[in-house]
């Protein structure tokens, strides 16, 4: 059911228009809503994970070194992580075209 909704015909719709595949919005890019993006100075990072906890998108993951970093595919650039980071690792920078 993750076919584009513009292609679906009435015959392809599931019983009761029910979706059977969970969590398909993960394919949907909300990152292009962003006007500013988080930028990281990991020197100060204590890997507390506050940024991950408070992210409304749930888009903050950990890299292989254990640093927390937003996935820009979904990050809408709200700046909550930057505001809440206790050690000032994150600054929000304007996106450029």
């Amino acid at each position: 059911m993750s076919t584009s909704d513009e292609e679906l015909t009435w015959r392809e719709i599931e019983v009761g228009a029910i979706f059977t595949v969970p969590g398909t919005t993960a394919d949907y890019q909300t990152g292009d809503w962003r006007s500013q993006a988080p930028s990281y100075n990991f020197d100060r990072c204590i890997k507390c994970g506050i940024c991950q906890l408070y992210c409304p998108e749930g888009c903050v993951g950990q890299d292989e070194d254990g640093y927390f970093i937003a996935d820009l595919y979904w990050c809408k650039g709200c700046g909550i992580c930057a505001r809440e980071c206790p050690t000032g690792v994150i600054t929000m920078v304007e996106e450029t075209e």
Binding site: D5, E6, L8, T9, W10, R11, I13, A17
Partner: peptide
């Protein structure tokens, strides 16, 4: 169900 799919759902 936005306009892009509502009529298909109703037809079905």
């Amino acid at each position: 169900g936005p306009p892009v799919i509502y009529p298909e759902i109703k037809k079905r």
